[in-house]
């Protein structure tokens, strides 16, 4: 009897845990958004976070975007040539990047580079009582630590996505030049086929991803101390891993949801 009840009990406990976490994340995110009311005092921190999230990620974004574009160009070329449609390569690369791969890969790269680092930073601040110190000074730690990062992410993600798209399209062009002498058609087809709605759809995604990635990363770090199974350095390590995994999962889930609405 005990064994029979163990599974539903575990299922119930897990479900409650998930609901509690989602609720806590919602309140946490809302608090961070409400912190934007006093944006003037946060400007130096926002600028620093733009530098950290945006500028310092530029190299890796450009590199990944270029090779993603080249791979798309290669794969696209050998697929399209079977239908004698290699002239459509530019459109295939551009639409793939602008609608899907640009926002998603940018978000995933930023999860790895900035999200993990933010989660670890806030986690260390939590276990070394720096967050408690802010609280005792009557400084709202969420407003002080999270709000500038959220604002910076909302600025950086779309910009980096735009850069990713441009560099990716350029990468695709290089593939096209290497494989075919009819490279001029690449850009002309993009110009004629790419619609504004494709671009805005990509940016909508990048805004949503920015919010998801940064709030989940900050949330995991902020509540490091609630991790029952581990504490200290191990707790920070688990929070960081959790931030990366959860961010990736929720980015992909939300990508599907947004795409289904945009299509």
């Amino acid at each position: 009897m005990k064994n029979i009840l163990a599974f539903p009990a575990m299922l119930g406990a897990s479900s409650l845990g998930i609901i509690r976490n989602v609720g806590q994340w919602g309140v946490f995110s809302l608090t961070a958004l409400l912190g934007m009311v006093h944006i003037r005092r946060l400007i130096p921190k926002i600028l620093y976070n733009i530098y950290f999230i945006g500028f310092k990620s530029l190299n890796i974004i450009v590199l990944v975007a270029f090779f993603t574009g080249m791979v798309l160009g290669l794969q696209g070329y050998y697929t399209l040539i079977k239908f004698s449609a290699e002239g459509m390569l530019g459109v295939a690369v551009a639409l793939s990047l602008v609608r899907e791969l640009g926002p998603v890969l940018t978000a995933i790269m930023l999860i790895g580079r900035a999200g993990s680092s933010i989660s670890a930073e806030i986690g260390i601040m939590r276990i070394s009582e720096q967050i408690d110190a802010l609280s005792t000074m009557d400084v709202d730690p969420v407003r002080y630590l999270v709000t500038p990062k959220v604002i910076a992410a909302l600025i950086c993600f779309p910009l980096l996505t735009a850069i990713f798209n441009c560099v990716g399209i350029l990468g695709g062009y290089f593939s096209s030049v290497l494989l075919s002498s009819r490279s001029g058609i690449y850009f002309s087809k993009i110009q004629s086929s790419l619609l504004l709605s494709d671009v805005t759809g990509g940016f909508v995604k990048s805004y949503v991803f920015a919010f998801i990635v940064i709030t989940i990363s900050c949330y995991c770090g902020y509540y490091t101390h609630q991790n029952q199974s581990s504490a200290g350095a191990e707790g920070v390590s688990n929070s960081t891993t959790s931030a990366v995994v959860q961010s990736c999962v929720y980015v992909l889930i939300s990508d599907y949801v947004i795409t289904s609405f945009l299509m």
Partner: peptide, 30 residues
């Protein structure tokens, strides 16, 4: 809370700030 101050057992200093910035923080923020 704004009437209180707390000195932590393990100091809880902000490691990304200098000594001066650490001491100045409550004045700047409040």
């Amino acid at each position: 809370k704004s009437r209180c101050s707390y000195m932590f057992q393990n100091n809880a200093l902000f490691d990304s700030m200098t000594v001066f910035e650490n001491i100045a923080l409550p004045l700047r923020e409040k």
